[in-house]
């Protein structure tokens, strides 16, 4: 068994433009997806748009002053906005546990993502 993160990348402008009814329909589709695959779903979430994002950059990565490579006295740089600006932004995710990539891809095909697509990433098992 392996764990995979299914990342939903969608056009935020399209999401912002849809009406309540359509939003409800998309959410219902997600609910159905969740119910159909509850046995392999390990988690998931719907993110606020990138306008709410805050990036933290520092030599140590996320700005942890104890991290290797982080020089004394340096502070993390905190900025408004996502880490990477893209037209289709990360808007949600599912964490699934399945036997192999083919099973993960079969699930990914069913994930509702009307304004973009999804990316399947295997998790390192440590």
């Amino acid at each position: 068994m392996g764990r995979y993160l299914i990342l939903l990348y969608e056009d935020e402008a399209s999401w912002a433009a849809v009406g309540q009814e359509e939003t409800a329909a998309i959410l219902a589709a997600h609910r159905r997806f969740g119910e159909a695959h509850g046995d392999v779903l390990r988690g998931g979430g719907w993110l606020h748009p990138t306008a709410t994002a805050t990036a933290v950059r520092g030599p140590g990565g996320g700005g942890n002053a104890d991290a290797p490579g982080f020089a004394a006295g340096e502070d993390a740089l905190v900025t408004d906005g996502p880490y990477v600006e893209t037209k289709e932004a990360l808007g949600g995710f599912y964490l699934v546990e399945v036997p192999d990539l083919d099973s993960a891809l079969a699930l990914a095909r069913e994930v509702p993502a009307p304004f973009g697509g999804v990316e399947v990433r295997p998790l390192r098992e440590t």
Binding site: Y4, P99, D100, L101, D102, V120, P122, R124
Partner: peptide, 10 residues
């Protein structure tokens, strides 16, 4: 190996 592409006839 890392992504778990199976050794299998689909």
């Amino acid at each position: 190996a890392a992504a778990g592409v199976p050794f299998r006839v689909p």
